[in-house]
Design a binder for these strands. Sequence first.
DNA 1: CTGTTAGCGCGTTCAA
DNA 2: TTGAACGCGCTAACAG
Lengths: 325, 325
Amino acid sequence: MTTITDIAAALGITPSTVSRALAGSSRVKEETRRAVEKKAKEMGYERNVVASNLRKGASSIVGIVVPRIHREFFSNCIGGAESVLNQAGYNVLICQTIESFESEVKALKTLKNYRVAGVLLSHAIESRSGDHVKEILGNTPLVQFDRVFPDLAGAKIVGDNCDGAFKATLHLIQAGYKRIGTLAGYMSSQAYVERLAGYRLALERAGIPFDPSIVYENTIVRETGYEAGLKAIEAGCDALYSSGAFNALGAIDALKEKGISIPDQFGIVGTANEGFTALINPSLSTLGQHPFEMGQAAARAFLEGSTDTEIIPMELIIRESSRKH
Amino acid sequence: MTTITDIAAALGITPSTVSRALAGSSRVKEETRRAVEKKAKEMGYERNVVASNLRKGASSIVGIVVPRIHREFFSNCIGGAESVLNQAGYNVLICQTIESFESEVKALKTLKNYRVAGVLLSHAIESRSGDHVKEILGNTPLVQFDRVFPDLAGAKIVGDNCDGAFKATLHLIQAGYKRIGTLAGYMSSQAYVERLAGYRLALERAGIPFDPSIVYENTIVRETGYEAGLKAIEAGCDALYSSGAFNALGAIDALKEKGISIPDQFGIVGTANEGFTALINPSLSTLGQHPFEMGQAAARAFLEGSTDTEIIPMELIIRESSRKH
DNA sequence: CTGTTAGCGCGTTCAA
DNA sequence: TTGAACGCGCTAACAG
C-alpha cells in the first residue's frame, strides 16, 4: 500500500504538500497538484481513511442497528438509508440485534468504539426504555426509526400508525361492513397501541360503539390470526382491521375454512405491505408503510442534524379483500 | 471520550501498561490489571478501534457488496454473514451497487480505503468480468457468492443450480408430466445457464428429447413469465420448470386465464423460495436456495481463509403446483 | 506556496 | 513487571 509519504519521497516534496494537494486545498501550486495526482494514480495510491479519520477525529461511517437485517421491512429501511448516506459520502456499518436487548447494547458499544458519525436505530423488542442508548452513545448523533422511545432525545422517524389504522377502518365502514373487529398485536409496542387507537377513532367518528370483545390482542403470526379469525366469525363480525399482514393471512385461512366469501360476506384490511399481500387470493388490502422512504428520512435527519419527529404517512392500498360489490 | 492515557494518568502509571492490561497480556501484574479494569469501567472507557486498527495495520471490518440490500435473497445472505462475522468479532460495512458496474468499482475502492479485513462480493449484473476486482482489492481477501466470476481467484459460494434444476425437472417427469418446457432467464448469467443445463440433463436421463422451441429465454419477471406461459400452452406443454419465482407466477396467471387446472392438467416448479410462493394459490413448488446459509458459508470461508468453491445444495420443496394426483 | 513540527490513540519494541 | 520511545498514515497549526 502506497502512502502519501511514498508519493512525497518519489516527488522530492513533503507529505504535507501531498496531503494538501490530494485534499484539493487552494494553497498548493497547480503544477504541484497535477504532479501529485499523476504520481498518486501511477503508484496506485488510495487514501487510508482509517488514519484520516483518526487524525480528523471524525468518521465517515454511520451505524445502523436493526432487529433483523433480512426482515423485509428493515432491509428496505437499510436500502433507503444507504442510498442517501452513500451519496453524502458516508458508509454504513450494520448490526442486528435479533430482538435481544443485550445484543442492542453490544451493537451500540461497537459503533461507539468505531467513533461513528451517527447511529440510526430501531429498537429490539426486548428493550423497554432508551436509557442504555443515552449512556452508551453519549453525544453521538442518534436517529430512531420505526421503533422509538419518545423520551430519548433526537430525531425520530415513525409511521403514522394511528392515521393509517383510522383510514383502514374508515374504509371498511364506508364499504358497508357493520361489525368490524381488529387483530391488535402487542400492547407493549407503541406502534400497535397507536393502530388500535386509530381503529377506535374511526369507529367513534362513525358513531359505532367500541366493543372490546372483538379486539383480539397478541395476534401477530399466521396461527394466532387464524384462531382470532375463528373467534371473530363466532362473534358475528363481518370485517377485520388487522395490525399486521401475516395475522391477516391467518384470518383469511379461517374464513376460507368456514366457506365465508371475501369480500362479499367479510372484509379485511391488513398492515405492512408485505410482498405476498398483492399475490394471494383474494389479494389483501393493506396499509403500506414505505420502509424505503423511512430509511431515507432517517438518513436525511442525520445529515441535517434534525431533532424533529417526522411522521411518514401510511398509504391505504385497496385490493380485493375489502372491495365489496 | 476517555483514552488509555487518561486512565494511566489517573492511576499514575503509563499508557503502555494500561494498553497491556486491557489487552490481557500476561506481562502485567494481576493487581495492576484489576486496578486498570476498575478504573476503565469507572471512567467509561471504550477502546478506540480506529486507532487500534491503524496501529495494528489490521481491521475488524468486513465489507459486503451486493446489488440490492433489500432484495429478499441478498438481505438473507447479509443476515447470515453478519451473524457469523459478528460472533468472530467482525463488523460488516455494506455497499449496494444497484446492479451498476461503476458503483461496484466505487464500492470496492471505498472498502479498500477502509483497509477492510476482507470483502464478500456478489457482482452487479453489469459486471462482465472480475478484472476490476483484482486490480482494486489487491491482496485483500475476497469471497464471491451467488454471482461469481470463475476466473477470479479466491473462495466462491454458489448454489447448485444445475443439480437443483435437474431435481426439479426430474420431479416433474416422475409426477407424470410429458411435455416439459422451461422459463430460462438470461444466458448472460452463469446461474441461468446452469439451470438450463440441469433441466436438459434431466430430460436426457429420462430419454426425453430436448426441444429448444419450448425453452423460453429472457423471462424473469411476472409479465414475461405470463407471455411465455401462453406460448407454452400453445406449444402443447403440460409442465414448466421455471428458473425464477416471479416468472412462474406469471405463467400461473396465464394458466388460470386459460382455465387450465394446476396441478392436474399442468405442473410447474419455480426457483428461489420467495416468501410468497408458499402463500399463493396453488402454492408453488420451488427450489429453495438457502441464502442465509450462503451468507454464513461466505463468512466462514473468509474466516478460514478458504479459497475453495463451495456449492450449496438447492432443496426441492414440493407444493401444490406439481403434486399431481 | 511549501516545509517543519506535532499529535490523533493505540500497541509494540527495547531497555530497565 | 513496567516505562520510554516510536510510529501506524494522515492532517493541521505555525513558520517561512
